[in-house]
Simulated assay, not measured.
Amino acid sequence: MPKVRKMLNNWDAPYIQSLMRQIETQSKETLTYWAVEYSEEVMLPLWRKHYPIDLRPSNALTAVRDWLAGTIKLPQAKKAILECHAAAREAENNPVAQAAARAIAQSASTIHSAKHCIGLALYGALAVAYDALGTEAQWEQLELCAAEGCGRMLDSLRSISVEDEPYPVNIDWKS
């Protein structure tokens, strides 16, 4: 049985590099919006498939939306995000749900640091691959499926990207 990996970790992979380059052209607000929208559309259903009554990932996304709207303060949003991280830890025996919850938590954490949005790809694309192919699949197959998922994420980000964004993020990917 192949070892179940918790995330993609090849930062030099073309599908990760393409996302990183597009991320660098956008503002934190655009990245937050993208990561939360994508998480709600793709990651949250994967979580709910396994844990339909655990609302912590959904609550984290709601908290970010509330923070963006100015109806709650950052500490309140952070509390919901930390609860989502806890949900991911508690799902350690379910790679699909765990990776989906981690992707959601990282996406939500974009309100704190724009760099966190890459977690959507690193965890989320693997969640989609595990869901589609199973955890028994060979890594090469999983990575190909994850690369396709990252391609869909990139298309999604490009569709909402602000052309000539005046305030793009400045991310040091090495720190």
Rank of each mutant, 00 (worst) to 15 (best):
M1H: 12
P2C: 01
K3T: 04
K3I: 02
K3V: 08
V4A: 11
V4R: 06
R5A: 10
R5D: 09
K6Y: 10
M7R: 13
N10K: 10
W11D: 04
D12F: 11
A13M: 01
A13F: 02
Y15V: 03
Y15C: 12
Y15P: 00
Q17L: 10
Q17Y: 03
Q17A: 14
S18A: 15
I23M: 14
I23S: 08
E24I: 05
E29P: 09
T30D: 01
L31Y: 00
L31W: 03
Y33S: 13
Y33I: 08
W34G: 00
E37R: 13
Y38G: 01
Y38L: 05
Y38R: 08
S39N: 11
E41N: 14
V42Q: 09
V42C: 11
W47G: 03
W47N: 07
H50D: 00
P52I: 00
I53W: 13
R56V: 06
P57Q: 02
P57K: 01
P57Y: 05
S58V: 03
S58F: 14
S58T: 11
N59Y: 11
T62W: 12
R65S: 13
R65G: 07
R65M: 06
D66E: 14
D66M: 15
L68W: 04
L68E: 14
A69F: 09
G70W: 06
T71P: 07
T71S: 14
T71G: 06
L74D: 07
Q76H: 11
Q76G: 07
Q76E: 15
Q76T: 14
A77V: 11
A77Y: 05
K78C: 06
K79E: 12
K79D: 05
I81V: 12
L82H: 14
A86W: 09
R89H: 12
A91M: 08
E92K: 15
E92C: 12
V96G: 04
A99N: 13
A100W: 03
A100D: 01
A101T: 03
A103H: 10
A103G: 15
I104W: 05
I104Y: 04
A105Q: 08
Q106V: 02
A108W: 01
S109D: 10
I111M: 08
H112C: 10
H112N: 13
S113Y: 10
S113N: 15
S113Q: 09
A114E: 00
K115S: 09
K115F: 09
H116E: 11
H116Q: 14
C117M: 04
C117N: 14
I118Q: 05
L120G: 03
L120F: 12
A121P: 03
L122W: 01
G124K: 06
L126S: 11
L126A: 09
L126M: 12
A129P: 12
D131V: 08
D131R: 05
D131I: 09
D131Y: 13
A132L: 07
T135K: 09
T135V: 14
A137G: 12
L142M: 08
E143A: 13
C145T: 13
C145L: 01
A146K: 06
A146H: 12
G149R: 15
G149Y: 08
G151D: 06
M153K: 09
D155V: 07
S156T: 00
R158H: 02
R158F: 02
V162K: 13
V162L: 11
V162E: 12
E163A: 13
E163L: 11
D164L: 08
E165Y: 07
P168Q: 05
V169S: 00
D172P: 07
K174L: 08
K174G: 10
